[in-house]
Design a protein around this nucleic acid. Structure first.
Length: 600
RNA sequence: GGCCCCGUAGUGUAGCGGACUAACAUGCCACCCUGUCACGGUGGAGAUCAGGGGUUCGAAUCCCCUCGGGGUCGCCA
């Protein structure tokens, strides 16, 4: 698009040698030689060197002396091949340069609060305060473009398969279960509130009742919970729902979508096909978490049966108290120093463990277990075990000489939390987290409900609309904890990318679930009446999934927090450092909304 | 809500009880420089050491509180 500002962008210059062009952009760098001045001009497409020669264009040269980094300028001149020997192989346009004839400063700039080019760590609060400048940096520009391409790919992919994108409201009714809602007070109805969607869950099910059959939406979701590196108060999901499908249809679609997306956008990253499908119980057992990083082994193993009769009181007590003892082997780490091992113990304590038992097996890697003697087992607690017990443990962990064995003993949840994190830590230390490998996997067969000790009732593991397997339905009356959900998680490299399920389309089963969850008839009618009613008007069997876009783009971009792929993210404490939101509002605004602030 | 890490010129760091009148790099300003590309050279300005309180003869440095940023457990159907 040629206009009064420019005829071409920087990256196109190489194709117009010998011709006159105009370009516009930001001054990336100025090199003033007293006579000659060089400017690296930057626009979205890249860099182009501009030469100002006082003998070629005195006025343009004079203007160039006033230019400073990040000034916005327009330059007209001729594209020329650079003199032999002065080419710069470091930039794509390094073969050519623009000989300036005419220059105009469109806007000046104050000095930058932080460097645009330097990749070194700038305090994130400074970046967030000047986010519009942070986004000017090439790295952030790339992240945003990648995000755009991911979303564009998803839209094209689903459109080609007959999906319809439908927007759903941002102002909804609050549903107190699940995450904490963001609330919006109603002006017209004193004392009443809208809630922002935690996800368009119920709406997309209703769209299935409407007969759209294949729906999707790039949906903004809001959850008022504490933040993490991979969690923001508002985030974006690919929300998707289909009618007349079973699990395989949804999972196959996901596998096809993500396989083709990777091939198109990140061909250099390897993936594993077909995507592994593992049961919930299996991944908890093997990895201690429901979102395992499958790029490496270091699998956990339960050794409770081996050590329950050992002389080691800590293990015996844990097991006697209903707990377990699990461990895994860190290959080649038997030479960890006392201090390094103490670090690991501290790591475990910081994550809720009472401690950690380390056991170094002396000897070269690959050595035989038969030669193992207790004096080659270096641990503070070696004396409590027989050589047979140690051999069994080593064998159970698929370990051998040269390895460092790590054990935790406690309630199962604590052991799994500690060891799953320690597993990631050791993988990082051992360099096993390959950035060019993404292992997508599906986790299935979660329990439908879990017992809530404090509330003395059953809670949904996922949400109350998840269907149980048909064959497990009788268990709803006898043993609800054993009912398996037609639920699936989609995980990648230790992140939960997505949750989904086949939904309940039978109002009687839906009512039964609600009553098991200890909702009163009135609560059910009040909160879910519209959904139950809808299920009575010819609701088709349906199911869906909702991959998190932020986490996906984060993984594709090689970033380790989602703020790097969100244009204007909030801090860990849910504030916006640029606009200073949230902020107080005027008394007038409050009055209009029928609100009065409580003293704290 | 718990635990942990961080806060020193615009930016990134050093300094970790006295030699600090706070150093280095970069950025900024001025001057010099016609083939640089992280251009080079000379000179200069720039810091209530996050804020408050305490310990000490003496605090950027040690302790406590607060604020801000980050990580994590709980939480996130």
């Amino acid at each position: 698009m040629a206009n009064r500002y420019r005829t071409h962008n920087c990256s196109e210059a190489g194709r117009h040698i010998g011709r006159g062009i105009s370009v516009a952009g930001w001054v990336n760098r100025r090199r003033d030689h007293g006579g000659l001045i060089f400017i690296d001009l930057r626009d979205r497409s890249g860099l182009l060197q501009v030469v100002f020669n006082p003998q070629v264009a005195a006025e343009a040269h004079r203007i160039a002396t006033e230019m400073r980094p990040e000034y916005v300028v327009r330059i007209t001149g001729e594209v020329a091949r650079r003199p032999a020997g002065t080419e710069n192989p470091g930039i794509p346009t390094g073969e050519v340069e623009l000989i300036a004839r005419e220059a105009e400063i469109l806007n000046a700039s104050r000095p930058m609060p932080f460097p645009m080019s330097d990749e070194s760590g700038i305090d994130e609060s400074v970046r967030l305060k000047y986010r519009y400048l942070d986004l000017r940096r090439p790295q952030m520009q790339q992240n945003m473009m990648l995000r755009h391409r991911v979303i564009k790919f998803i839209r094209d992919f689903l459109d080609a398969r007959g999906f319809i994108e439908i927007e759903t409201p941002i102002l909804l009714k609050s549903t107190p279960e699940g995450a904490r809602d963001y609330l919006v007070p109603s002006r017209l109805y004193p004392g009443k509130f809208y809630a922002l969607p935690q996800s368009p869950q119920q709406l997309k099910q209703l769209l299935m009742v409407s007969g759209f059959e294949k729906y999707y939406q790039i949906a903004r979701c809001f959850r008022d919970e504490d933040q993490r590196a991979d969690r923001q108060p508002e985030f974006t999901q690919l929300d998707l729902e289909m009618s007349f499908v079973d699990e395989e249809n949804v999972l196959d679609l996901m596998e096809e979508l993500f396989t083709s997306l990777m091939a198109e956008l990140k061909p250099e990253i390897r993936i594993v096909k077909p995507f592994p499908r593992l049961s919930y119980h299996e991944v908890i057992e093997r990895f201690g978490t429901d979102k395992p990083d499958l790029r490496f082994g270091l699998e956990l193993a339960d050794v409770s049966d081996i050590v329950e009769d050992s002389e080691f009181g800590v293990f015996r007590t844990a097991i006697a108290g209903g707990g377990i003892v699990k461990g895994f082997a860190a290959p080649g780490c038997a030479d960890y120093s006392r201090k390094q091992q103490a670090e690991l113990v501290e790591f475990a304590r910081a994550r809720g463990g009472k401690g950690l038992v380390t056991m170094a097996i002396e000897g070269g890697q690959g050595g035989s277990l038969d030669d193992l003697t207790l004096d080659k087992v270096h641990s503070a607690v070696t004396r409590f075990f027989t050589i047979d017990q140690v051999r069994e443990m080593v064998k159970r962990l698929h370990a051998g000489p040269g390895d460092l064995l790590l054990f935790a003993a406690d309630k199962a949840e604590v052991v799994n939390t500690v060891l799953s994190q320690l597993r990631l830590e050791m993988a990082n230390r051992l360099g096993l987290t390959d950035p060019n490998l993404m292992v997508f996997a599906f986790i299935q067969d979660h329990p439908l409900m879990e017992w809530n000790q404090e509330g003395n009732r059953w809670d949904s593991m996922h949400h109350p609309f998840t269907a149980p397997y048909d064959e497990d339905i009788p268990l709803l009356d006898t043993d609800p904890g054993r009912v398996r959900a037609r639920h699936y998680d989609f995980v990648c490299n230790g992140y939960e990318l997505s949750s989904g399920s086949i939904r309940i389309h039978d109002s009687r089963i839906q009512e039964k679930i609600f009553s098991l969850l200890s909702y009163s008839d009135e609560e059910i009618r009040e909160r879910f009446g519209h959904l139950l009613e809808a299920l009575e008007f010819g609701a088709p069997p349906h199911g869906g999934i909702a991959p998190g876009i932020d986490r996906l783009v984060m993984l594709l971009a090689g970033e380790d927090n989602i703020r790097e792929v969100i244009a204007f993210p909030k801090t860990k404490s849910a504030t916006d450092l640029m606009t200073n939101a949230p902020d107080a509002v005027s008394e007038d605004q409050l009055r209009e909304l029928h609100l009065r602030l409580r003293a704290h």
